[in-house]
Design a protein around this nucleic acid. Sequence first.
DNA 1: GCTAATATGTCGCCATACGACATGTCGCGC
DNA 2: GCGCGACATGTCGTATGGCGACATATTAGC
Lengths: 109, 109
Amino acid sequence: MESQPFAPLSESTYLILLSLAAGPQHGYAIMKSVADLSDGRMQLSTGTLYGAIKRLVNDGWIERFDEADYSGGRDRKAYRLTELGLRALNAEADRLRALLAAHVQVMAG
Amino acid sequence: MESQPFAPLSESTYLILLSLAAGPQHGYAIMKSVADLSDGRMQLSTGTLYGAIKRLVNDGWIERFDEADYSGGRDRKAYRLTELGLRALNAEADRLRALLAAHVQVMAG
DNA sequence: GCTAATATGTCGCCATACGACATGTCGCGC
DNA sequence: GCGCGACATGTCGTATGGCGACATATTAGC
């Protein structure tokens, strides 16, 4: 458990968390959402997706969230962002801003 | 243009390239420069640094650049950014901007 | 009935990050 | 002239993670 600052996130992890920040979703929906959020640049393979989900659940950044009003027979497992996951996501956005600021600074100087 | 010429860079790679964008430097100087650029958040280990340098030279993103006016007996190998490396760095900055824009968009909506 | 899209999951390969280790030089205080 | 910390470069083994390939099942539409 890192009470310390969050480690740099990979693009996949970042986009998955961002996806879920918009609301609970199940795996397949996350895949499409990530492609959408990245303008098609990032196409998650199922290996990456479900591997990441397992890891994120384990780290307590996301959690199972099965909607009460869902009664379809189709196999679907929804997930939502936890408080910890939201903090990680926002910390990551701050890190990206710092990285960009450094870029601007170097290019200007 | 190519759909995706440059893969997402790791923070280490990005900071090393950014370091060299400010001017040619040798390995040890890059280490300190990276720590400086990231406000001390990123402390490269030598394993990461020299592994990355080897890879980046191999990919043609950076190249050896030994200053003519350097005559010290101390072992120093300087590197500088190539055109390709500069393009990769700028592409990465654009990617970061897109990632941040997506964050703002999701958080606003 | 067939096919594509939906949906979840595993397996193995490979690239990368990184701590630990190895080696040597240079400047400075004592 | 000796020790020591900073300078400087490099290798090695391990762990993590991304990803293509494979496996399986359901549902919608033609």
